[in-house]
Amino acid sequence: MAKITFITRDGESKTVEGHSGSVMELAVQNHIQGIDGDCGGVCSCATCHVHLSPEDMEKLGQPSEIEADMLELEDNVSSYSRLSCQLDVSDELDGMTLKVAN
């Protein structure tokens, strides 16, 4: 189980609990504004873009090449950007705070 906090662009914060699936799916189920997950998680739409804290980024690691190429042309990209459909909900993510990028 993992408790994850999303902070949306308008500063709202929401903490939700997940057990399985991807972080994008968890966000969509909980109607987190700015996470649409249009492509269902195949890395084709980038409507699931989040920013991690530097420590969490180190913990979870850098995006794969395909994910990084997608992020490169995204608005609001930073070196702490990830596509949340590529992050699996797991104990490792418990307590993390993710900032929605768009």
Partner: peptide, 24 residues
Amino acid sequence: DRKMNPHVGFGFSHHKCLGATHAR
């Protein structure tokens, strides 16, 4: 069940298909 599929069938970036939600 292709997992990584960064296709551009609905276009890409600013003009990506507005009808894609309906189409999907």
